[in-house]
Amino acid sequence: MVYLRALLLPFSLLYGLAIWLRNRLYDWGWLRSVAFSRSVIVVGNLAVGGTGKSPMTEYLVRLLSQHGRVATLSRGYGRQTRGFLEVMPDDTARRAGDEPLQFKRKFPEITVAVDEDRVRGVSRLIQSGHDTIVLDDAYQHRALRPGFAILLFDYHAMDKPKWLLPAGNYRDVFRERRRADVMVVTKTPTGTTEAEKNRIRQQLSTTCDIPILFAGIGYGPLTPVLADESSAGALHQDTAVLLLTGIANPTPLYEYLSPQVSEIVHIRYADHHDYSAADIQKVIRRFSEIGNPHKLMVTTEKDAQRLREPAISGLWAGIPLYMVPIHLEIGAADDAVLRERVWAYRSRSHY
């Protein structure tokens, strides 16, 4: 695999040149970048894969929704629709995208919208009276100029080469971290030493005054995926779990579940996998082969939105299917810095 990546380096150099030129054209004003008079906060990353953007977006929603009209906007990856769409709780993942639907079902009181054209989407939301818009995964969308940008890095990937696609996992040049207002290292394990954090700060540091914060992932109690699921959803040392995931990095969830149960059978699909009836039948067959009578099927919040699709939801009858809610966990000191920076920006933008 290392040799294959090395062979792809010339293509990464060409890709990097194109990305560098595109960014400079925006910086020099040769390509138009639209700014807005209301609060526009972007959450993003430089690498492909999951860095915890959804928990960060939810953190911001909880922080800001008590003080004005807040909306979230994303592309709606994997949806089969186009254009601007306001997401409703009874939508499907194929219509709205899995993560926007997750946001709406978790925060039914706020507006959740999708639009591949972020400038158009933000304009629509401002016109309808929203004063704060949080954009999920729009750091590279340079046609929109955010008022505040939060850039995320996965703790477990910090020591990997910062190579660009296709040789590496970076979709943007590492130096573009300088456009951020705050950097957050996510999925930081509990007990990470200050010396280790300082080592990572040195990797990320720039000449700009950008706070570098650390956060982890917290897990909530098992929650039924289907409304009619009534069996108990507790984990015990004698429980066997079939873990079903279609996310970029399921390792942290696997590591969280492993010490709590006797056995985990992991069926892993690609990120945003569109589950078919054949997929579900295969998963159920594998579940039936687990000999332990104390067994559960566990999935992620994001996967749950796709597993509820009307075409396949009926196949889960009689299967104890649960999801594990997640949330951002951040220490008091870093939380105070993040809140202060976000509120300072919001106060300026609403002056």
Rank of each mutant, 00 (worst) to 15 (best):
R268L: 12
A270R: 12
D271Y: 05
D271L: 06
H272I: 09
H272Y: 03
H272D: 08
H272K: 09
H273Y: 06
H273F: 07
H273I: 08
H273P: 14
D274I: 02
D274N: 14
Y275W: 05
Y275G: 15
Y275C: 14
S276V: 05
S276Q: 11
A277G: 12
A277T: 10
A277D: 07
D279E: 02
I280K: 00
I280R: 02
Q281F: 01
Q281K: 14
K282A: 15
V283H: 08
V283F: 06
V283A: 15
I284D: 08
R285E: 15
R285T: 15
F287Y: 15
F287W: 11
F287K: 09
F287L: 08
S288Q: 14
S288N: 13
S288K: 09
E289L: 13
E289T: 14
I290N: 10
G291Y: 02
G291N: 12
N292Q: 07
N292T: 10
N292S: 10
P293N: 03
H294W: 03
K295P: 14
L296F: 01
L296G: 10
L296Y: 07
L296D: 09
M297T: 10
M297A: 13
M297H: 05
V298W: 06
V298N: 06
T299P: 09
T300N: 05
E301D: 12
K302W: 04
K302A: 10
A304L: 07
Q305M: 15
Q305W: 00
R306T: 13
L307D: 06
R308G: 14
R308A: 10
R308T: 14
R308W: 04
R308Y: 02
R308E: 11
E309Y: 07
A311H: 08
A311I: 05
I312D: 05
I312E: 04
S313P: 11
S313C: 11
S313R: 13
G314A: 06
G314I: 02
W316E: 04
W316Y: 08
W316H: 09
W316C: 12
A317F: 01
A317L: 06
G318A: 04
I319G: 11
I319N: 04
I319M: 09
L321E: 06
Y322P: 11
Y322T: 10
M323W: 02
P325A: 02
P325E: 00
H327A: 11
L328S: 03
L328E: 01
I330L: 00
I330Q: 00
I330E: 00
I330S: 00
